[in-house]
Amino acid sequence: MLLVAASAVIIAGIAAIAVRHPGERPVPRVSGDRMVRLLVDRLPAGGAVRDESGSASDSRSGPGAELTYDRGDGSFRIALAVTRLATPVAPNAADCPDRAHFPYEKCAVTVLPDRSRLMTSEGYEDPLDPSSRPRWIARLVTPGGRQVEVGQWSPRPADANGARTTPPLSPAQLRAVAEAPQWAEVVKALPVPQAAAPPAAPVTDRPLMLRLIRDSLPPSVRVTEEAGATRGYAVLTLDDGRGAHLMTVTAQRWRRDSPEMEQIFADASVRRDGVRVVTRRTAAPRGGRGEVQWEADVLRPDGLRISVSTLNSTAFGLPPTRRTPSLTTEQLTAIASNDAWESG
């Protein structure tokens, strides 16, 4: 899963090894100045632009541009990056940020007529603090591998005029910048990437995951919110009447000889059918005082791994809402061990 930084690269792209295919026709280099001009031309009229910088298509960071935009009522930084992704494009390339780590993000994904996916999010500099400066992002990913990311955020520290409370570009204007057809020409100047084989593949569509999880919960526990990626990952908010809290579920298929899995399940208990099980009760990573995480991790002989985790808060880093999660590690193990995962 996405942080805006004060650079031309807004959000980390999909990892790929860039190679030029034999016989591929060379295309003109796109300069950093050209990237700046293309971005400036896409911005709404009436704003002053300063502190521009750009990177060329043959630079290490790839083509991008960054500038300060001011309509007279406070300045914002705006940055754009263009990337060429390996095809077929990963299905999660334009997913919303993980609500488990970005609890206050307002996000939507739109599927366009050409099957491109457009993600627009309205979040904050500190994802755990909605009183911090706003950070809005738009990301377009096309089936052909064009990825355009554009974001806006308040400069730190604020300039003499102060920083706006609301970013100058509306979500629709941010989207229009990402969708501009000029970026297709920029992508042609980039080498065709070759995707590296992932160590694990997500399995099970999220609706099926959510249904299976719901069916496994005790009657006293309700699901009050659902989120997650398209496949292989689900985020739920649970509540048994004693405080809402977070559950995350990951469903992946790993290689049977995966060294990563051998290390994680080195001390696992092994059932007669070869299924390995690990349970953990730890302090939550990046958690506040009193935040705990309970987990059940199950690995089947065919490489199917189901990991179920709960917190005693509604997101990583937020204060606890209860002393312990509503489900025991035994109940989490029962969910992760359900044979129905194999049919997903």
Rank of each mutant, 00 (worst) to 15 (best):
R25N: 04
F76D: 07
L217M: 00
P103I: 11
V141H: 01
A65E: 01
G303D: 09
M247G: 02
A6C: 01
A163R: 07
L238R: 03
D95H: 02
D273K: 12
A172M: 03
R115S: 15
A79Q: 11
D205Q: 14
P259Y: 05
Y233L: 11
T110K: 06
R20L: 10
V19D: 03
S131M: 08
E295C: 04
V275W: 00
D73W: 03
G303E: 08
A158C: 15
A8W: 01
S326I: 04
L80N: 02
Q194C: 01
D257S: 10
E185F: 12
P157N: 09
I10A: 06
G344Q: 05
E149G: 11
A56C: 10
R300H: 11
F76Y: 06
E66N: 09
T110V: 06
I17T: 11
E125C: 04
D240H: 11
S326F: 07
A100T: 13
P28S: 11
V308T: 13
A160W: 00
P134D: 00
S269H: 14
D339R: 15
V235I: 13
R175W: 01
N312V: 01
A178E: 02
G144F: 09
D33E: 12
A8H: 11
R25G: 01
R211F: 02
A12C: 01
H245R: 02
P219H: 12
R60H: 04
D73K: 13
D215E: 13
G274L: 09
S309A: 12
R25Y: 04
P113E: 14
F265R: 06
G72S: 04
R289P: 10
V270M: 09
Q194N: 02
T329K: 00
A90H: 10
P319Q: 11
A100E: 10
V82Q: 00
G47R: 07
R115M: 12
P88K: 07
R242I: 06
L43Q: 03
A138W: 13
T110P: 00
W183D: 08
P22A: 15
E185D: 15
T68R: 15
A5Q: 14
E262Y: 00
L246R: 03
S170Y: 04
A196D: 05
A16Q: 12
A184I: 05
A234D: 10
H101C: 09
R146C: 07
P103E: 08
A18C: 01
A201R: 13
E179Q: 09
V186I: 12
P193S: 09
W183P: 09
R34K: 07
D51R: 09
